[in-house]
Design a binder for these strands. Structure first.
Length: 104
DNA sequence: AGCTTGACCGACC
DNA sequence: TGGTCGGCCAAGC
């Protein structure tokens, strides 16, 4: 097959749209969830077509905000009640692997 | 075909 | 907390 990058991109964007408010996924988590590509491929998709999805819910594994969009991201986190830890997202609490809502 | 770049990741110090 | 390093995989030149 051709391997249209847009098909992979659509899958990535679909997953991102399913991330519940107040939760986040890492680039690597998304790649692992899809079972294809890698963190860098997911990153490429977000860089090119991430403007139409909740991009602030996709962050690096260390919980740091997207460089260059820190203010905008922080605004969303505060509005969604995303667990924060100083200048980062508290991955221990906010990380979402794609499983159905856990009974917290 | 070789080298560089990128919204990455984990290990290590 | 932060910097470096090697590994990672696709795209561009």
């Amino acid at each position: 097959m051709h391997g249209d990058p847009t098909e992979f991109a659509e899958r990535v964007l679909d997953v991102v749209e399913r991330i519940p408010p107040g939760r986040v996924m890492t680039y690597g988590d998304i790649a692992e969830f899809l079972g294809e590509g890698g963190p860098r491929q997911v990153g490429r998709v977000m860089a090119l077509w991430g403007g139409g999805v909740p991009w602030w819910r996709v962050i690096r594994a260390d919980g740091s905000f997207l460089p260059g969009h820190e203010q905008r991201a922080l605004k969303h986190y505060r509005a969604e009640g995303t667990p924060l830890r100083d200048t980062r997202v508290d991955m221990r609490l906010a990380r979402w692997t794609g499983e159905p809502a856990e009974a917290d």
